[in-house]
Design a binder for these strands. Structure first.
Lengths: 180, 180
DNA sequence: TCAAGTTGTTTGGGTTGCCAAACAAAGCCC
DNA sequence: GGGCTTTGTTTGGCAACCCAAACAACTTGA
């Protein structure tokens, strides 16, 4: 079993990731970003942003010019774009493939965007590209899945059916474990 | 835009969720769970577990008998089972549908298991059940997706192709925004 | 130009969650 | 029975984050 605390062993924390993304989005939208703008975007105080960005500047992810306008270093830009891309890809996959309502998909992906590995994000991207390629198999699959979903039980999570599924998966996992 | 800090607005924190799951797994595996067992399972000190569980007992999620054996209340059990089911469903989906390597899927789902909404988990379950139903469309889809994946660019994440995809999704999102 | 608002920083406080270390209380072995 | 280990708790520290409040250094508008 892995150390479950790999959680906070990421290159950037959840908080830091959001600071970087906020700067990138502000730069995209308005062409500039200041401490106050970031604070407004994130819904926290200027003081908190000021302190956090001090750390990110120290780590070479965020830059600041003489007029206090913020920018992203190459590394910072890369991290921000990566997190943003992960969020968009995952959200689109949740909505288009799984049929999750837009609003809910947004909430979920916002929480997990910075935690998903590049590997998984990359695979998700492939699936999404395939889904959008208009391939016959993709169309047929989503169509059939919708139909399957409508026929399924409307109970909450986890329903009895899902509990059973989970137990089944767990059993399979144990068997695979034993084979080693 | 949502408050990104919905993150920590969950019924239980990441840490608490893992404590509950650890107790459930220990009970499943050995029939009992004590503070030390939980600590070993989570890879943290007994002191930390002792303090955390004091809180969870206070919130009525964890019980303790006169011989210091831990248990889960109905609520605690429900939360633990929910988190475990989410992890298994998501991991299986990542592996079976997206083609993520088992090990990596484990790491990823471990980080996000307690953050995914019931709604999304439920949809993911439907997709997984469909995938395992042996339906023709499901077989054809995974087959074609594998083929599509092999043909794709082997670059890291985010590749130029994925960046382009992300920009495209972002544009669609903005258009949907404007229509309101 | 000068009062009023905006901006960024600093400081003290609070929360969560971890550790290390020190203990007391059982449990176990000979 | 007397050591030795295991167990659970408590305590003091530390690191991330957040806030509120107080400041100084700007802009800016009439």
């Amino acid at each position: 079993m892995h150390d479950w605390r790999e959680f906070d062993q990421n290159p950037v924390s959840h908080s830091a990731a959001h600071h970087l993304v906020a700067i990138a989005e502000l730069l995209d939208a308005y062409g500039y970003a200041r401490v106050s703008d970031v604070a407004r975007e994130l819904g926290i105080t200027r003081g908190s942003v000021s302190v956090t960005l001090k750390g990110l500047k120290g780590r070479g992810l965020v830059t600041e010019d003489e007029r206090r306008f913020l920018g992203l270093s190459e590394d910072g830009e890369r991290i921000a774009r990566g997190v943003m891309a992960k969020k968009q890809v995952l959200k689109a996959l949740f909505v288009d493939l799984l049929g999750v309502p837009d609003e809910q998909a947004d909430l979920d992906t916002c929480k997990i965007e910075h935690l998903v590995s590049d590997e998984t994000a990359s695979r998700a991207s492939r699936a999404l590209l395939f889904l959008r390629s208009g391939a016959r198999e993709a169309e047929a699959f989503t169509e059939a899945l919708r139909e399957f979903g409508r026929a399924g039980d409307p109970a909450g999570f986890p329903s009895e059916e899902v509990e059973e599924l989970a137990r089944e998966i767990a059993r399979e996992g144990e068997e695979a474990e034993e084979e080693r």
